[in-house]
């Protein structure tokens, strides 16, 4: 029983970690309608920035978020402005896919060039110490990540529902032409949203860096899992991505223990494929305009 509880706790903590990566991805997809294949590399860039800042200035990695998140915001905004926006009217979707795939490939290999294939360990500053919650052992860093993920989801929801800009973002996503007729500058909204999505993963990267060794290819693993969470939770839904991430975290932990750690990913991706093919609106049936999926 203890083992089971421990595994569930591990799964939930892992889920929180996936969530903080997935939230930005689903935000960008839901609003800009672009699947950002480079999202994992945004995480990777954020983790290297955290590593460099926290080692270079000898500060707690969490503090670097104050610089990393804005830096990622700029990276995301530039991506939208320079790479995606010129392609928004493209007739074929493949150009947008290739654009972010190209960005992903370029960033990953740039990191290889600059940092080499060796891993970089961000100093832990105590976040890898364990705490006992009843019977289960958890790293304090995992708790922080989990808490941050919840706050991020709530904060984003409030922003989207309660502020004028948030409403404008939602309006643009639901009907771009009508939004323009309301006086909304859709291009600005897209740049803002892409920036926000990247800033979310920037925040995440500062929290994740002390827990995971940073390497140029770390993004690939996380982005694929994040895609799974996003599809599971209903594309474009922020709370959906959070709960999707928790489910995937649990599946990962449980299948790792009961089926075999080398088959965890197969289980996760099989679930992903089943959802994608059988219920593309996601597990929680969020109402979403799935213009990409035929009826």
């Amino acid at each position: 029983m203890d083992t089971f509880l421990q595994i569930v706790a591990n799964g939930l903590m892992l889920g929180g970690l996936f969530a903080i990566v997935a939230v930005g991805l689903t935000l960008i997809f839901g609003i800009v309608k672009v699947i950002n294949f480079a999202h994992g590399e945004f995480l990777m860039v954020g983790m290297y920035l955290t590593f460099l800042l926290s080692t270079g200035m000898d500060v707690h990695p969490y503090l670097t978020a104050a610089a990393v998140a804005p830096a990622l915001f700029v990276l995301g905004a530039l991506t939208q402005r320079l790479l995606i926006q010129p392609l928004m009217s493209a007739r074929d979707e493949h150009v947008q896919i290739f654009a972010t795939v190209g960005l992903s490939t370029a960033l990953m290999n740039l990191a290889l060039l600059v940092f080499g294939a060796d891993i970089a360990n961000t100093p832990a500053h105590g976040v890898r110490s364990q705490v006992m919650l009843g019977e289960v052992r958890i790293l304090t860093g995992q708790l922080w990540v989990f808490g941050a993920a919840i706050l991020l989801v709530i904060g984003l929801q409030l922003f989207m529902k309660k502020t004028r800009t948030g409403r404008a973002i939602r309006a643009t996503a639901q009907n771009r032409a009508a939004a323009r007729l309301m006086g909304i500058n859709d291009k600005f909204i897209y740049i803002l949203t892409f920036g926000l999505g990247a800033a979310c993963v920037g925040l995440g990267s500062s929290l994740i860096a002390p827990l995971y060794p940073t390497s140029p290819t770390i993004g690939t693993y996380f982005v694929l899992i994040a895609f799974v969470c996003v599809v599971l939770g209903g594309l474009g839904s922020i709370p959906g991505a959070f709960f999707g991430a928790l489910v995937i975290g649990l599946v990962d932990a449980l299948s790792g223990f009961y089926i075999g750690s080398d088959l965890r990913e197969a289980v996760v991706f099989t679930i992903f494929l089943l959802i994608l093919i059988l219920k593309p609106s996601g597990l929680f049936g969020t109402r979403m305009n799935l213009s990409h999926v035929s009826p």
Binding site: L87, G102, T105, A106
Partner: peptide, 19 residues
């Protein structure tokens, strides 16, 4: 020395081509 260089070139060329 240039580990990652060819991938970087591929990625950049890919973005330039789509643009």
């Amino acid at each position: 020395e240039a580990i990652g260089l060819h991938g970087f070139v591929y990625g950049v060329v890919l973005m330039l081509v789509v643009l």
